[in-house]
C-alpha cells in the first residue's frame, strides 16, 4: 500500500525584488509517496531550487512563500515556526546541494560536519556518534573511513565531498531527502556512481527522494515519477516511462529532443528555440507559447489549466501531443 509522505498544494514562492515580483514558483502541486523517487526537471531558472528550498522553508529575503500548503506527514509546514522547522531540518527532511566544493564549511572536519546532525537530532553519546560517522562514510563508499574523519574538506576530491554531504544528509535517517542537482558539478563517471549510490541507499531505508535536475536522461533510470517545471509552473507530470517515451507537452518533448544520443543518426542536435522568458515580463496565456512549435491562437490568450490525460499523467497544455506521437 502506498503511503503519502509529502503533498505540495498550489505552492507560490515569490521574490519581491526592487525591479518587480519574480514568481519563481507559481502554483506548483505534487505528491510524493514513502520510498518514492520523484524528479523535478526543467531548464535553468524554472524554479526547481526554489521549490526545494520552500519545502524546508529556507527561503530568504526578499523571497516569501505567498500561498499554498506543504503537507509533510500530515502536518502543514507552511504554518510551522522557525523553531519547529529547525527540528525538522536535518532530522526529518535533509538536503543535498548542487556544488560539493562549496557546501562544506572549510574550517570544520568531515566528522564535525556529519556529527553535527547527530548532536542536534539524536541522543547518541560521543562514542556512538563517532561509530555512526564511520559507518556512514563506509556506506557512501569512502575508503578507510576512520582515517578520513579528521580530514578537512579541501583534502577531499569533489566526488568524495559529495559522498560526505550525502552521509551528513543520511545521518539522522530522514524520511525525505531533497537533492538539488547533486551531480551537476561532478564529472560523468562520478555522476553515475553517485546517483546509483543514492538510489541504493534511499531504497534500502525506504526514504523518499526529491531529485532536482535539468537533465532528464540522467535521472531516467533513477526516478519513479517526474514533474516538468517551466517558469515556476508544472507543465507535465507522470511516470518517468510515460514522460520519456510518450511526452505530451511540447516542452517535455523539446527537452528530450535536445539530449544527445550516441545511437542517433541525425546530423545535428535539435534544441528548443528561444530562451527562458524574462521573469518580469512573462507572456500572456501559456508561458511556453513564444517558444512552442505547436502554438496556436488560444495559447497566446488563455493560460492552460493542468488536467489529467491518462492515469497519473497530467499536462498543462491546450493542445497536448497525442500519446502515440
Amino acid at each position: 500500500m502506498v503511503e503519502k509522505l509529502l503533498e505540495v498544494k498550489d505552492l507560490k514562492t515569490h521574490f519581491h525584488t526592487f525591479k518587480g515580483i519574480v514568481k519563481a514558483v507559481d502554483g506548483v502541486s505534487f505528491k510524493l509517496n514513502k520510498g518514492e523517487i520523484l524528479g523535478i526537471v526543467g531548464e535553468s531558472g524554472g524554479g526547481k531550487s526554489v521549490t526545494g528550498f520552500s519545502i524546508l522553508k529556507l527561503i530568504e529575503d526578499p523571497g516569501k512563500i505567498e500561498n499554498g500548503e506543504i503537507i509533510f506527514n500530515g502536518e502543514n509546514l507552511v504554518n510551522k515556526s522557525e523553531r519547529e522547522m529547525k527540528e525538522i531540518r536535518g532530522s526529518k527532511i535533509s538536503m543535498i546541494f548542487q556544488d560539493p566544493m562549496t557546501s562544506l564549511n572549510p574550517l570544520y572536519t568531515i566528522q564535525q560536519q556529519i556529527e553535527e546532525v547527530l548532536k542536534l537530532h539524536t541522543d547518541m553519546n560521543a562514542k556512538q556518534r563517532k561509530q555512526r560517522c564511520i559507518n556512514l562514510l563506509d556506506d557512501v563508499g569512502i575508503p578507510q573511513p576512520e582515517a578520513r574523519l579528521k580530514s578537512y574538506p579541501h583534502q577531499f576530491s569533489g566526488g568524495m565531498r559529495q559522498r560526505a554531504i550525502i552521509a551528513a544528509a543520511l545521518a539522522a535517517e530522514p524520511e525525505l531527502i531533497i537533492a538539488d542537482e547533486p551531480t551537476t558539478a561532478l564529472d560523468v563517471t562520478i555522476q553515475a556512481q553517485i546517483l546509483r549510490l543514492m538510489k541504493k541507499l534511499v531504497k534500502e531505508k525506504n526514504t523518499s527522494l526529491l531529485l532536482i535536475t535539468h537533465d532528464l536522461a540522467v535521472v531516467a533510470e533513477m526516478v519513479d515519477r517526474a514533474i516538468v517545471l517551466y517558469c515556476g509552473q508544472v507543465m507535465e507530470t507522470g511516470k518517468i516511462d510515460d514522460l520519456i517515451h510518450q511526452p505530451i507537452h511540447p516542452y517535455t518533448y523539446g527537452l528530450l529532443n535536445s539530449i544527445p544520443r550516441l545511437d542517433d543518426q541525425k546530423k545535428r542536435l535539435s534544441q528548443i528555440e528561444g530562451m527562458v522568458p524574462n521573469m518580469f515580463e512573462l507572456p500572456e496565456g501559456c508561458n511556453y507559447s513564444p517558444r512552442c512549435d505547436y502554438c496556436q491562437e488560444r495559447c497566446l490568450q488563455e493560460e492552460p489549466k493542468i488536467r489529467e490525460i491518462h492515469e497519473g499523467h497530467r499536462v498543462s497544455c491546450h493542445y497536448p501531443l497525442s500519446r502515440e506521437g
Binding site: L58, K86, E87, R89, G90, S91, F97, L120, A168
Partner: peptide, 9 residues
C-alpha cells in the same frame, strides 16, 4: 545554507 538545512541553531 547547508548548515541551516541540517537544523543548526
Amino acid at each position: 545554507k547547508f548548515a541551516r538545512s541540517k537544523g543548526v541553531l
